[in-house]
Amino acid sequence: MEFPTLGRRRLLELGASGVTAAVLAACAPVPEGLEVATASVHSGSFTSKFRPDTGTNWSVAVPDRGADGDQRPLPVALFLHGTGGDHRMIFEDLRAADVLSQHVAGGGTPFALAAVDGGESWWHRRATGTDTQAMVVEEFIPLLAGQGLDTGRLAVFGLSMGGFGALLLASQHRIPGLRAVAAMSPAVWSLHDAARTDNFDSAEDFAANDIFALRPELGALPKRIDCGTSDNLLYSVKDYVSGLPGEHEGGFQEGGHDGGYWRSILPDVFSFLGRNLA
């Protein structure tokens, strides 16, 4: 398993179960005279009691704050991937380590970026016994604390299936003191579709995880939601956003349900996360 080339350095090949550290140089243009930061990406795996039939891999990107920078433990932005993806999605498809480097180089609040495998579970407990939401809360977040990160300052964000998962996790208050939630093109529906079983096991399962009904739970939490104007989910996302209590950031920009759109908004998403993790 190997990361693609990001910046001018190539990430080291990952072991099947070990932890690998790599450093990459940010290669996107920066303002003249601005020093370019770097981000170290560490990866590993663990065995989850909530995903007993498969290994669970993870990656964490940590920005370089320099010898003179604030060396206190970093807050964490936790990313939940979409369908067909895994912990590498945010780094391979969206080049997030480069974006994080540029965010810090531009004076944004430094934070660690963490991602973990969730399979096709839709980030909630399923009839099979898989429960990736519990895996995140009870296993992965403590693992991040063990890596020396400040999990008392944590935000969650995701895209598509993971956008739904991030909103659900925030709405169900599974993370005490959560600082913010962001969703890119979240896969949200106001009604259960009995013809589908990939996202919910039954009407009862849908009702237990109905984020439309849970919208009042997000009233006080900083939130950002974005969706492309050519995305098939646009009208459902607009419907969801129209009933959100309190203020929210984000919007509906030109683009589809694809990496090009998500890469275009990721710097603004990181700015939102950084402000609320400060």
Rank of each mutant, 00 (worst) to 15 (best):
G129S: 03
D98W: 04
A134E: 05
V136M: 08
L94H: 11
E138A: 12
G69S: 12
P73G: 12
A77R: 09
E92H: 15
S101D: 05
T54S: 00
G55A: 05
R126C: 06
E120C: 02
G69A: 11
L80R: 04
A115I: 04
L94A: 09
W122S: 01
T130D: 01
A97N: 05
T83R: 03
G129L: 03
D93P: 09
G84N: 02
P73W: 09
A97P: 07
G129D: 02
R125Q: 15
V60W: 04
L94S: 06
V76D: 09
A114V: 12
R95G: 04
P75G: 11
G106A: 14
L78M: 15
T56Q: 00
Q71R: 12
P75C: 05
A97W: 03
Q133E: 15
A77P: 11
D93T: 13
G129M: 02
Q102K: 15
T128R: 08
M135C: 13
G118D: 00
F111R: 11
G107S: 06
T56A: 00
S59D: 05
L80K: 02
D131R: 14
V137R: 07
Q133W: 13
D64P: 10
G85L: 01
P73E: 10
A97L: 08
A115R: 08
G119H: 02
V62S: 10
H81L: 05
H87G: 06
E120G: 00
F79H: 06
V116Q: 08
P142K: 04
T132S: 05
D70K: 03
V104D: 10
V76R: 11
T132I: 06
L94M: 09
M89I: 07
A105H: 13
A114C: 15
V137T: 14
T132E: 02
I90H: 05
L78Q: 15
A134R: 06
A115S: 12
D86H: 02
I141K: 03
Q133D: 15
L113I: 00
L113P: 01
I141A: 01
G129H: 03
M135F: 05
S59G: 09
G82T: 08
A67T: 15
A127Y: 01
D117R: 02
H103G: 09
G106Q: 13
D68I: 08
R72I: 12
Q102I: 11
E92R: 14
M135S: 14
T132A: 03
T109V: 12
D68E: 13
V116L: 06
A61F: 08
D98S: 07
L94R: 05
R88F: 04
T83D: 04
Q71A: 04
G118R: 02
V76E: 11
I141R: 04
A114P: 15
G69M: 08
R126S: 12
E120F: 01
F111D: 09
S101E: 02
R65A: 04
I90V: 12
V116R: 06
M89T: 08
